[in-house]
Design a protein around this nucleic acid. Sequence first.
DNA 1: CTGAAAGCGCTTACAG
DNA 2: CTGAAAGCGCTTACAG
Lengths: 334, 334
Amino acid sequence: MPDSPKKTTIYDLAQLAGTSASTVSAVINGNWKKRRISEALATRVLELAEEHGFALNMQARALSREKSGIIGMIVPMYDNRYFSSIAQGFEAHARDAGYFPIVTCTRRDPELEVAAARAMLGYQVELLVCTGATDPDRIHDLCAAAGVPTLNLDLPGSKASSVISENFHGALDLTRKLLIQCGKDMPEAVFIGGRQSDHNTRERIRGFRQALGEADITIRDGNILPCGYAAEKAGSAYRLWQQSHHGSPDLLFVNSTISLEGILPEIEKLRAEGAGVPILGCFDWDPFAARTIDNIVMVKQDVKRMLEILFGLFVKQSDEIEQIEVATILESRD
Amino acid sequence: MPDSPKKTTIYDLAQLAGTSASTVSAVINGNWKKRRISEALATRVLELAEEHGFALNMQARALSREKSGIIGMIVPMYDNRYFSSIAQGFEAHARDAGYFPIVTCTRRDPELEVAAARAMLGYQVELLVCTGATDPDRIHDLCAAAGVPTLNLDLPGSKASSVISENFHGALDLTRKLLIQCGKDMPEAVFIGGRQSDHNTRERIRGFRQALGEADITIRDGNILPCGYAAEKAGSAYRLWQQSHHGSPDLLFVNSTISLEGILPEIEKLRAEGAGVPILGCFDWDPFAARTIDNIVMVKQDVKRMLEILFGLFVKQSDEIEQIEVATILESRD
DNA sequence: CTGAAAGCGCTTACAG
DNA sequence: CTGAAAGCGCTTACAG
């Protein structure tokens, strides 16, 4: 392999093979049957390409084709299983579909989301998937102005199709199950985590309320605590609740593993003191939490299915706006 | 915002502003003081750009500048805290340094690694960081032929600088701590997970052996089980060990959180049966595992520091090959 | 203070 | 069966 100091181009290859750039291009792109290029020439070109470590310049290709072959995704964070499996699955699907995936995390920051969307537009993405975006409609407008379609995942938007979990039903089932585990007649039930402003949190609260209603349990407003997703926020909201109630709730619905991380130290403190510990539910899943926290019930979102549907929408390219809800799975150790 | 059906170019902007593409280019790139363009014109151009949702075509820029502004990273997986925080931190650093980050996961598959490296080369990355790569030297050669520098992270290579954890010392400290916790005179100690072929695993085994040696504990070869990283592999290797020894070890050194996931069910089974449970150590960190598994000691790798050093090497661009080891942190609940 | 023009490395009608 | 040439949207000397 002659270490060419500078990058090899199709012109170099053409010269080496005694042919033209057009022909090399056709060979590289596998169009040589169509162009009826002799097999011998094609083989020769491919050999030379291999030998010189030739890599097609994708920017040049994108420029001339006027399409990049890139699809983008923005994600709030990588540091939990839900979003990281979304990122990983998105990559795999994109590659299988012949696209190059670009994913970027925007820390639930609206400004960063917009900046990331602009950057992706600069790279001429052919699709932008907004995962858990705080303002997907704004991103949609940005992309629409550039003629780029968007799709929403996890959190819905109103201007493009969305694939989300069955938040209401998932929360309903989870709460029902927790009530059974709890056993008490009039348990003190608390919901914690998430944002009142986001659709998923609202739907989950609705499911939570409904399950309690079915059991004729009245729920005080002070027991619904959409304090944000961050671990610290959930931790301190929980601590505050405990202080003002002089004790822990009987049943605790936690709205994400991130929030669960913040609450766990408090739960452990209770356990260490030999005090009663609330029955725990979490609308989210983590393998260690599921395995090691006593009596926790977790809701696993069906990432595989969500991505299949998402890519189905992408290839369909319909401009009808749909909102598709995907069933969740309840996981507990018993 | 007039929804232009087609993308706006600098020529469109030039026409609109009654000036030339060169001038627009200078304004967009913030070089207009240098070009002494009138502030009025500059402002006007920027307004128009905003109004039309203009986004510089980065492929065109890359092509003409002959540099892409992209840096790439390959990572084995996203689905654990170590690698996902590496990916997240890489993104942040890249952006701060004015680069566009591309990260791709290659599932510890040598062929995928090479394919991903080729794809990145096609996108003209200016640096490729190989994280936990099975054959970083092969990727280095590929990149070197295209004049692209590489850097290794987590697992070292011999042809480019590497930033890795202090595997030997980390394992030594961890094992010492486990021995203290264990308390027994002649504990049965087992090492599980990882690959004999990788540097980190070998170094950790060395640290493990050394700590045992210091305590005059002889260690049988059958107790060193580098069975791979996958959870299932670790699970079955552990089960096998237990079967042939009619019991569990006293001390178990697990080489990653992934392997820990595979072993946990067995540990729980023991606990449920009221049988003795080994003292657990893990060369890796996960917040839930750290919090919820009784008496586990975890080694946290210093991702923040590793990335700082990595980017330091990148900006330095020295062609001296260094291998830098970063201290790890021991975490336990007491 | 500003513009015309060449060139980056491809693709793709088009002509032979 | 194959090549010359225009064009994709920028940047950057160069000339004024």
